[in-house]
């Protein structure tokens, strides 16, 4: 399976996926830490993928959504955004709604 197929499988088989640097317990980057904090605040169940563990995923995820930075949030297979977008959707309450649907 190509790396793009494997990413597609991960984001479609899990309702909420966060590609991040580090793990939810030990984030390795401030932006990833902020993204985890938002999802925890909303009580979301999510799958976290540590891109630092796999160079192919780290590069492949940037191409998958044509988005150059990490973290990246996916809900039901759809790319939602990076850390700025998560912050803004969180502050308006939209993210909570998206996670409930």
């Amino acid at each position: 399976m190509s790396i793009q197929d494997s990413i597609r499988q991960t984001v479609t088989e899990n309702p909420v996926v966060l590609f991040m640097k580090g793990t939810p317990t030990f984030p390795q980057c401030g932006f990833s830490a902020g993204a985890v904090q938002i999802l925890k605040n909303l009580g979301a169940n999510f799958v976290a993928v540590n891109v630092l563990e796999n160079a192919e995923v780290r590069q492949g995820i940037k191409e998958y959504a044509n988005w150059p930075t990490i973290p990246q949030l996916y809900i039901k297979g759809e790319f939602v955004g990076g850390s700025d977008i998560m912050k803004e959707l969180f502050s308006t309450g939209e993210l909570e709604k998206m996670l409930q649907d």
Partner: peptide, 10 residues
């Protein structure tokens, strides 16, 4: 939408 706005700026 928000994502498209951010893409436009970047």
């Amino acid at each position: 939408g928000l994502l498209a706005r951010h893409r436009l700026v970047k």
